Amino acid sequence: MASPFKTSLLKTFRAPSLCRYHRTLATAASYRSFSILNRPPPKYEGHVPLTRVERVALAAGSAFLSLRDPHRGDLIAALGEATAQPYFISRLRDAMLSSPTGRRILRDRPRITSKTMSLEYLRTLPANTVGRTYAAWLDREGVTPDTRSAVRYIDDEECAYVMQRYRECHDFYHAVTGLPIVREGEVALKAFEFANTLLPMTGLSLAAIVTLKKNERRRFWDVYGPWAWDNGTRSKDVINVYWEEWLEKDVEELREELGIQSPPDVRETRKAERDRRRAAKAAREGIS
């Protein structure tokens, strides 16, 4: 019998509003075909215009290779860009335009890097703040804000910024939910992001479930998958969080504002399971 989570996953979908539908049609209609020999000039620094055949090839190749090596962030980034347009990244941009905070982000265009955000300062903040939670997560996981690739394959310049913003906020999503960068934590966060943003790459990344160990897959379907779907669908659009303005505020206040509940700690859950296995093995050896 299918679990309630699996059933809701098949039935639940956020229908776009009528205005978003018309905006999407206009975007698709303006999508100009071109050939390799007649490639238009870049629309922003680093932009690489692709033909539709090239975009399909990029999506297929990056999807296959990133499944084999989930640690290749460049492949996951390419997959995200190749599958996001013309509809899905425009939908996310429209979600920002519908929010006063989202509109301010689009106007200000802040960036999240080690140059724009002082980790030394964030480490001095009280432990309950968003900034300290973010810095502590980065330190614990051994990553920095500078690991996110620049957007290259999104044609619309404003949508390219939206994708860049989503990409640079990814570690904040990790920090607020407490999910680590181990494969089990990444799959859970991608499920949350898919439910919240509908970006195809986040949904396609769930194929990594097949690479999880048996106990990890069981935990995903029983615990982290239902948590991700429930929190991702009912919480506010996380793309509209102006993280730079929340750094000195209470992280629990932010979770309450967004409507996000923290999932069970993945590392603690894995440790408890290892301890149980060791105890059971010791008991069996003692009996024998």
Score class of each variant (00 low, 15 high):
Ala283Ser: 13
Glu285Ser: 12
Glu45Ile: 07
Trp227Leu: 02
Phe5Arg: 00
Tyr134Thr: 06
Arg274Met: 15
Leu138Thr: 09
Glu168Cys: 01
Arg23Ser: 14
Asn240Pro: 01
Glu184Thr: 08
His170Asn: 09
Lys281Trp: 08
Arg72Pro: 04
Gly61Glu: 05
Thr133His: 02
Ser235Gln: 06
Glu186Tyr: 02
Arg165Phe: 13
Trp229Asp: 05
Pro86Arg: 04
Lys213Ile: 10
Ala136Glu: 15
Ala26Pro: 03
Ile36Trp: 05
Leu106His: 07
Phe34His: 15
Pro42Ile: 02
Val53Trp: 13
Ile181Tyr: 12
Leu247His: 01
Ala84Asp: 08
Lys43Cys: 06
Lys213Gln: 13
Ala82Val: 10
Val210Gly: 05
Arg72Glu: 08
Glu244Asn: 02
Asp108Asn: 08
Ala228Lys: 00
Leu97Ser: 10
Glu248Ile: 01
Gly80Phe: 00
Trp246Gln: 02
Thr116Phe: 04
Thr12Gln: 11
Ala207Thr: 09
Leu37Val: 09
Pro126Met: 05
Thr177Cys: 10
Asn128Val: 06
Ala28Cys: 13
Asp156Lys: 03
Glu252Ala: 10
Arg32Ser: 11
Arg152Thr: 08
Leu106Asn: 05
Ala127Val: 11
Gly102Asp: 06
Ala78Phe: 02
Asp222Leu: 10
Arg165Thr: 08
Lys11Gly: 02
Glu268Asp: 14
Thr116Ser: 15
Leu50Arg: 07
Glu45Ser: 11
Pro4Phe: 01
Asp230Ala: 05
Val182Met: 07
Ile181Asp: 01
Arg255Trp: 05
Arg255Cys: 12
Lys43Ile: 06
Tyr121Ser: 09
Glu184Lys: 06
Arg274Ile: 06
Leu258Cys: 09
Arg278Lys: 13
Gly232Leu: 02
Leu119Asn: 03
Glu168Ser: 03
Arg267Gly: 06
Arg284Glu: 15
Glu45Gln: 09
Ala228Leu: 05
Arg23Gln: 13
Arg39Asn: 09
His174Trp: 13
Pro263Ser: 04
Thr133Asn: 08
Cys169Trp: 03
Glu81Gly: 04
Leu67Ser: 12
Cys169Ser: 13
Met1His: 04
Thr51Cys: 03
Ser30Gly: 14
Arg55Val: 08
Met96Phe: 05
Glu157Tyr: 02
Val210Leu: 14
Gly203Gln: 09
Glu257Asp: 11
Pro264Val: 07
Ala26Gly: 08
Pro126Phe: 03
Leu138Gly: 10
Leu254His: 03
Arg104His: 10
Trp229Ala: 05
